[in-house]
Write a protein that binds this DNA or RNA. Structure first.
Length: 140
DNA sequence: AGCCATGCACCG
DNA sequence: CGGTGCATGGCT
C-alpha cells in the first residue's frame, strides 16, 4: 500500500478559468507512473480508468491518460501523464488552490482511496520521506 | 518539467 | 447555451 500526494495548482481545480482536463502526473518517477497503472507508450494517448473511493465511500471513476503525441506524431509536443474527470469531485469538496489530493493504493489494481487535505493543516510526521517531484510526494 | 491555456465536440 | 472533457500548443 502506497500513498502519493499532489498539491493542487490553480489550474488543477479550474480556478484559472481554463477547462483543461486533469491534473498532471509527472513522468519523472516511474514508481509514480506505475502507481496508477501501466499505459503502453507504443500506443498514441493510451488511457485507463481507475476507481477512487473518498471518505464518504463514494466512488469516483477517473481517467488516467498518457498524452504522448511527441512519440508518435511528427511535430507533436505532448509527453505527459494526466488524471482527468476530477472537476465534480473538486467541486463537491470545495477544493482550493494549495490543498492536497491524497491517493492511497489498495490491494486491487487501479483501485484507490482519495481524500482532500486542506492546506491549512501543518505538516507533521517526521517519518514521512519527501520525494523529489514538484507538487507530488510519496508517503511511506 | 510543470503549469497555463484553448478550439472544438458533445451533452444536458 | 453553458459546462465539461479531449487533445493539443504555449509559457516559464
Amino acid at each position: 500500500m502506497t500513498t502519493f500526494i499532489k498539491q493542487l495548482s490553480a489550474n488543477d481545480i479550474g480556478s484559472t478559468g481554463s477547462h483543461q482536463a486533469g491534473i498532471l502526473v509527472p513522468k519523472g518517477d516511474p514508481e509514480l507512473v506505475g502507481f496508477f497503472g501501466k499505459l503502453d507508450p507504443s500506443h498514441l494517448n493510451p488511457d485507463a480508468w481507475i476507481s477512487c473511493v473518498d471518505e464518504e465511500l463514494k466512488e469516483w471513476r477517473l481517467r488516467f491518460v498518457y498524452y504522448n503525441n511527441k512519440l508518435h506524431t511528427p511535430g507533436g509536443t505532448r509527453n505527459e501523464y494526466r488524471i482527468t474527470h476530477l472537476t465534480k469531485y473538486f467541486k463537491s469538496v470545495n477544493a482550493a488552490h494549495g490543498d492536497s489530493l491524497v491517493f492511497t493504493s489498495s490491494s486491487e489494481p487501479r483501485h484507490f482511496s482519495v481524500r482532500l487535505e486542506r492546506s491549512i493543516k501543518p505538516e507533521i510526521h517526521t517519518h514521512r520521506r519527501r520525494v523529489v517531484l514538484t507538487g507530488w510526494r510519496k508517503v511511506h
